[in-house]
């Protein structure tokens, strides 16, 4: 009899343990979910709440980015470039250094701007509050925002005046750091390495062609252009140059790159006056393999 009771208590202990474990596990997952849904974004005076974006996300974003935010929505198979996988916490358009999380305002701006030459449209028709909420919702998919802080934004000094000297210096930077290896000697996106570029998921990807007049993926202003090559576009072959291009040289390069684009600009006007031509750089092979 005593043995039976002992035995019974043993079984009971086991059952209770298992029950408690699964209960606390369920609680933990629920707690984690609640905590993630409590994610906020702060853009200036705006505060976005992830929980408030659930409906908006389901209405506008889920088709491509998927219920889990992993970029595996039902439309994803038809798209190129592929929708972003938010669970990795890796983004092209950042003010912060390579390998770090972007600022909330970077996500907010990307949602509003859309990504040119991709299927991501501008979401400016949504209210700024809705976009702030979505930025928080994007964050809630990756645990990185629980454990890490966004990186330090790179500093962009005040834009100097465009001069002929700066344009020539910019061309020298373009040749010295060998932008042309991918973007081509004249910026047409046809450099010797262009044909073999792949993104982090090993999918083919094209370098930007400055001559086709498309907007940059991460903004249109001179400051945006400065930021793009200094921070690099994470997830793509475009590396960060902030270690190797000084702030002043970076502005020279910005001005030179503007002369390659078809749009009117002061830099382009000066380049025309001094007869600055984007030429094959000295280090480039005379017969760069055309692919």
């Amino acid at each position: 009899m005593r043995r039976m009771m002992l035995n019974g208590s043993l079984v009971l202990t086991a059952v209770v343990t298992v029950a408690l474990c699964s209960f606390s596990w369920a609680q933990a997952t629920k707690a984690e979910e609640d905590r993630r849904l409590g994610m906020e974004s702060h853009i200036g005076k705006l505060t976005g709440h992830a929980a408030a974006a659930q409906g908006t996300y389901r209405r506008y974003c889920v088709g491509c980015h998927g219920v889990l935010g992993d970029g595996e929505g039902e439309n994803a198979q038809w798209l190129d470039p592929k929708p972003r996988n938010f669970t990795l916490g890796i983004f092209k358009c950042r003010s912060t250094t390579t390998g770090t999380l972007p600022l909330d305002s970077d996500l907010f701006d990307t949602i509003g701007r859309g990504l040119d030459s991709s299927n991501m449209p501008s979401w400016n028709p949504l209210s700024s509050q809705e976009r702030a909420d979505l930025a928080a919702y994007v964050k809630h998919f990756s645990a990185r925002w629980v454990t890490e802080k966004p990186g330090t934004p790179i500093e962009i000094p005040k834009k100097p005046e465009v001069t002929a000297e700066r344009l020539k210096a910019g061309q020298e930077v373009f040749q010295r750091v060998e932008c042309w290896k991918c973007h081509g000697p004249t910026g047409m996106g046809n450099g010797p390495s262009a044909a073999t570029l792949t993104d982090d998921q090993n999918r083919p990807i094209l370098p930007y062609n400055f001559h086709d007049g498309n907007r940059f993926k991460c903004g249109t202003t001179d400051e945006d252009l400065y930021r793009i090559f200094m921070t690099g576009l994470d997830g793509t072959p475009m590396p960060s140059w902030s270690d190797n291009i000084k702030p002043d040289e970076a502005w020279d390069l910005v001005f030179y790159l503007r002369t390659l684009q078809p749009m009117k600009s002061k830099a382009k006007e000066i380049a025309r006056q001094i007869g600055l031509k984007p030429g094959a750089p000295s280090a480039a092979p005379a017969s760069a393999p055309q692919q």
């Binding site: 890796i90 390998g99 990185r144 750091v177 690099g232 994470d234 590396p239 960060s240 140059w241 190797n244």
Partner: peptide, 8 residues
């Protein structure tokens, strides 16, 4: 976390 840096 992946990163991508240039080295001229």
């Amino acid at each position: 976390i992946p990163w991508n840096k240039s080295q001229p």
